[in-house]
Nucleic acid binder design. Structure first.
Length: 428
RNA sequence: GGAGAGAUGGCAGAGUGGUAAUGCAGCGGAUUGCUAAUCCGUGUACCCGAUAGGGUACCGGGGGUUCGAGUCCCCCUCUCUCCGCCA
């Protein structure tokens, strides 16, 4: 949600931001609605002031036994005007909110313009692409050959875009999540949280998935929604609250299941577990002071990268262009891991600074020291990392010619010391 | 699923038609060798105003009655307690 005062003060800057997002200028229309709404509000308030004053006199008159009919008649005469102004203020406000809540966040100054993925800018490349003396396979071939990744069983249970894991691969999912959570909580200062995955509509409004992107989400018959990411629950922990400045930054992490309908992705990544309706992810969220969110984005991206470094997975970082960035973000880094089976880099994490865009929607504020009033916090979210995709990356980068997969050193303590996942791998 | 109770500011907690007590915490200020204590101020959002200042709304949400609603009426949501079922 955008700040009306900012639009009033810098309408050109607002329109330029919209234009970079590929949208037509709207400040003139918004400011017209805004000034008409304020005029109605002011007129209403003046009538209410009068009504309150006269009502007081009525009370005083009645107490002293005087006749109050003339005063009562005066208030009666105000009623139509009050009702009219109240109605038009409400209508104009609703129109304004409906317009504003559908607009995406404005892009940061330092991100590239562009229409889509091809215009993202590579920031850095880490690690050498894994070399093989055989033709590396894709993860689904490896997993199915190991007998531990079963798409057929999942299809019988649920349909397309689900997977069943068994044995060492099932444990690998848990090992990866535990490794990531330990790293973020013990070394990166995040607080581990367990949240619901079923939420009410308001939570999804706060982070910006609703009302615009309902078709991407699953919803239950009794009107709960399944979270597409723990960003929703972790960020909304700050909703409707006023934090003390000393409580910032608040860094949280959670391992949850995520649910996405993938409505717009028909035919894309249909094989394997790259794009699933249900997957698990370790999410990082940070609620910061407005002055610190830019630095925090760099820090958070580094936290996600550290997972890949410790797992020995090659990757690159790209900064998203205006056309590829999500609704609530003002700046986003994607981390793309090298997948030798596919021979390409694929997204494994996305770290975004949302500025005060989500905070404004969910009324998340803090109280500045030595200042009157409150200010909106800034919110950031990032995957640290998507567990299923990390498994894909481990399988493809650590595969051996004989079809087995070497367990990365960092994961062995979490796998009961297991060094290789093979056809007959003990579950340990 | 059945029965009942409740929702008031950061927290606690009064308030059954006359315009939100009080306590605690936090923050700002005063006082003070230091600390403690004490005293004063301080809810949130919005509108008008160059400023000083003035005003409106908000007692879970939405409607209604009334000159006037935290208080009365209607609808909804949520929370809690007991019983039943249940991981």
């Amino acid at each position: 949600m955008h700040d009306l005062r900012m639009i009033r003060e810098a309408p050109d800057r607002f329109d330029q931001g919209l234009q970079r997002r590929g949208l037509a200028p709207l400040s003139a229309h918004i400011l017209d609605l805004d000034s008409r709404r304020r005029a109605a509000q002011t007129a209403l308030q003046e009538m209410l002031t009068r009504r309150n004053a006269v009502s007081k006199q009525v009370g005083a008159a009645k107490r002293s036994g005087e006749d109050a009919d003339a005063l009562i008649a005066e208030v009666q005469n105000l009623k139509d005007g009050i009702a009219d102004n109240e109605a038009s203020e409400k209508a104009l406000d609703a129109e304004l909110v409906e317009l504003l809540e559908g607009l995406p966040n404005l892009p940061a100054d330092d991100i590239p313009d562009g229409d889509g993925e091809d215009d993202n800018r590579e920031v850095r490349v880490e690690g050498e692409k894994t070399a093989f003396d055989f033709e590396p396979k894709e993860h689904f071939d490896i997993g199915e050959a190991l007998g531990q990744m079963d798409f057929g069983a999942a299809a019988r249970l649920s349909g397309a875009r689900f997977v069943v894991l068994r044995g060492a691969l099932a444990r690998l999912e848990r090992a990866l999540a535990a490794f990531m959570l330990d790293l973020h909580t013990q070394e990166h200062g995040f607080n581990e949280i367990v949240t619901p995955v079923l939420v009410r509509e308001e939570a999804l409004y706060g982070t910006g998935q609703l009302p615009k992107f309902a078709e991407d989400l699953y919803r239950t018959a009794d009107d709960y929604w399944l979270i597409p990411t723990a960003e929703v629950t972790l960020t909304n922990m700050a909703a409707d609250g006023i934090l003390d400045e000393g409580d910032l930054p608040s860094r949280m992490t959670a391992w949850t299941q995520c649910f996405r309908s993938e409505a717009g992705a028909a035919g894309k990544d249909t094989r394997g577990m790259l794009r699933q309706h249900q997957f698990s992810k370790v999410e990082m969220v940070c609620v910061t002071h407005p002055d610190n969110s830019d630095a925090e984005l760099e820090r958070m991206t580094g936290c996600a990268e550290e997972v890949l470094k410790r797992l020995g997975l090659p990757y690159r970082v790209v900064v998203l262009c205006t056309g590829d960035m999500g609704f609530g973000a003002r700046k986003t880094y994607d981390i793309e891991v090298w997948l030798p089976g596919q021979g390409t880099y694929r997204e494994i994490s996305s770290c975004s600074n949302c500025g005060d865009f989500q905070a404004r929607r969910m009324k998340a504020r803090y109280r500045p020291r030595g200042e009157k009033g409150t200010r909106f916090v800034h919110t950031l979210n990032g995957s640290g990392l998507a567990v299923g995709r990390t498994m894909i990356a481990v399988l493809e980068n650590y595969q051996n010619a004989d079809g087995s997969v070497t367990v990365p050193e960092a994961l062995r303590p979490y796998m009961g010391g297991l060094e290789r996942i093979a056809l007959d791998a003990p579950v340990a």
